[in-house]
Design a protein around this nucleic acid. Structure first.
Length: 451
RNA sequence: GGUGAGGUGGCCGAGUGGUCGAAGGCGCACGCCUGGAAAGUGUGUGUACGGAAACGUACCGAGGGUUCGAAUCCCUCCCUCACCGCCA
């Protein structure tokens, strides 16, 4: 029964006791709905296995609890008998029959309860979040819904080049050097392009902290398995990660979402703390194995093993998360608008939605080199899904009880892809690059990048 | 890396095998007192799961073990602090 679920759980990763990702009671009470909604995401939730495991868990748990209660009583009786002067052996003899019963049954009962619970937990850890009602049906990115377009793609009176040709002609971008030092999917930037990369990072961080009310954080670029489980990368997506050969379960962070969202793991925040939401902006490198992407986007800086992002993370009250997704997406859009890069906003369909996400907007920037819109930011509301895995809660003044927060994040933006977009959108016929107005001060006054 | 000391409730801090989910204090909440406040005083004050409830069970860094019984004893691991060494 359900043996396949066991394989998904790396040792030591089970969250303490009953903390599971989708609300157990909710699933139990709304099984039809859960199954139907997960199907929108292309996930087949096995309701029979779930019901079996849930029933087995409950039965074993009750048996075990009952036996433990009896044991406790017996132990206390021995204690009081010993206290009143009897020998331990005499005291034990008085409760011999109960002890015998417990001896026979307790260890198997606890083991059964533990097994059932472990399997159920593993099953739910491997079950994705339920999509929001607003998520359109669909199986691939072709079914995503365009919300709107912003900006007019520029009309070139020459044939625009892609960023690789432009960067190599400037002798400031080299895939070959990246490959020599590390391997494929690595890039070396030099001189003004290296500076432009740094300028973009600073510009984004400044904008979000000074204009959008985010708090800047600096975090570890190495994260442990528990953190990755909290945000949903583990246990299911280990092959996408770079795991370190270290004594512990260390991974290179695939996105600042992991370290930053885990700041609130195992915390109970006060009502005041989450009243306006916690808003973090964080710049990190991101490392991804791109295991499932062989052959895709091999040219240029679109899909790299190492890239940088400025990430926006929000921790909010459940009632605020829908609005927060809109504003957070707007904060990412503000970067594109200030840089005057044409883009479109897309609502992801069920099939394209990420594992942990409830609702996601992708921002796709126009790339003249590809004559296509390409993802440059992905902004998601995770509802309470990550919060449940993280045990990230707030004390609701109305109930006085700890309740799960909602988490959101979005790229604001992916730095490498923004650099690509600037090269391609701001190129001149002679191969030089006009520096966007907003970046000139970050480039020490440089207005044109030339070879 | 070496040596030593520790990890207990929101915080501080008792507790070294038996009614301990855990003394005491602080903080907090509510009440009394007061013209009002302070002081004083009384009560309450962790989380999760099951249960309509009464209540039951689990949790004293994590995991394992010994025992009828573990916060307390043993083992492993993690983390923190102090001193030394090394180092951006």
């Amino acid at each position: 029964m359900a043996a396949q679920w066991q394989a998904f759980t790396p040792p030591g990763l089970l969250v303490n006791c009953w903390n599971i990702m989708l609300d157990l009671k909710y699933i139990r009470n709304n099984l039809d709905e859960v199954v139907a909604k997960l199907a929108i995401k292309g996930f087949a939730f096995d309701r029979d296995v779930f019901e079996q495991l849930d029933a087995a868990r409950k039965h074993a748990d009750m048996t075990s609890q009952d036996l433990q209660a009896q044991r406790k009583l017996a132990s206390k009786k021995i204690g009081s008998l010993v206290a009143s002067g009897k020998s331990v052996d005499e005291a034990k003899a008085e409760v011999a029959s109960i002890l015998e019963l417990i001896d026979e049954q307790l260890s198997t009962a606890t083991q059964d309860a533990r097994d059932a619970q472990g399997k159920l937990e593993a099953m739910l850890l491997a079950t994705p979040n339920i999509p929001s009602n607003q998520v359109p049906a669909g199986t691939s990115e072709d079914d995503n819904q365009e919300v709107y377009r912003w900006g007019e793609p520029r009309n070139f009176d020459f044939k625009p080049k892609d960023h690789v040709d432009l960067g190599e002609a400037l002798q400031q971008l080299s895939q070959e050097q990246g490959a020599k030092i590390a391997g494929s999917r690595f890039t070396v930037l030099q001189s003004s392009l290296a500076r432009l990369h740094r300028a973009l990072t600073q510009f984004m961080l400044d904008t979000h902290t000074e204009q959008h009310g985010y708090q800047e954080v600096y975090v570890p670029y190495i994260v442990n398995a528990t953190s990755l489980q909290g945000t949903g990368q583990l246990p299911k997506f280990e092959e996408d990660l770079f795991k370190l050969q270290a004594e512990h379960d260390f991974y290179l962070t695939p996105t600042a979402e992991v370290p930053v969202t885990n700041l609130v793991r195992d915390e109970i925040l006060s009502g005041e703390q989450v009243e306006d939401g916690l808003k973090f902006a964080c710049h990190t490198p991101c490392f991804r194995s791109e295991a499932g992407a062989s052959g895709r986007d091999t040219r240029g800086m679109i899909r790299q093993h190492q890239f940088e992002k400025v990430e926006l993370v929000q921790i909010v009250r459940p009632s605020d998360s829908q609005t927060a997704l809109e504003t957070l997406t707007g904060h990412a859009e503000a970067i594109l608008r200030t840089l005057e890069l044409p883009y479109r906003k897309v609502l992801l369909c069920g099939g394209d939605l990420g594992f942990s996400a409830q609702k996601t907007y992708d921002l796709e920037v126009w790339l003249p080199g590809q004559s296509a819109y390409r993802e440059i930011s992905s902004c998601s509301n995770f509802g309470d899904y990550q919060a449940r895995r993280l045990q990230a809660r707030w004390r609701n003044p109305e109930s006085g009880k700890p309740e799960l927060v909602h988490t959101l994040n979005g790229s604001g933006l992916a730095v490498g892809r923004t650099l690509v977009a600037i090269l391609e959108n701001y190129q001149q016929e002679n191969g030089s690059i006009t520096v966007p107005k907003a970046l000139v001060s970050y480039m020490n006054g440089l207005e044109v990048i030339k070879g």
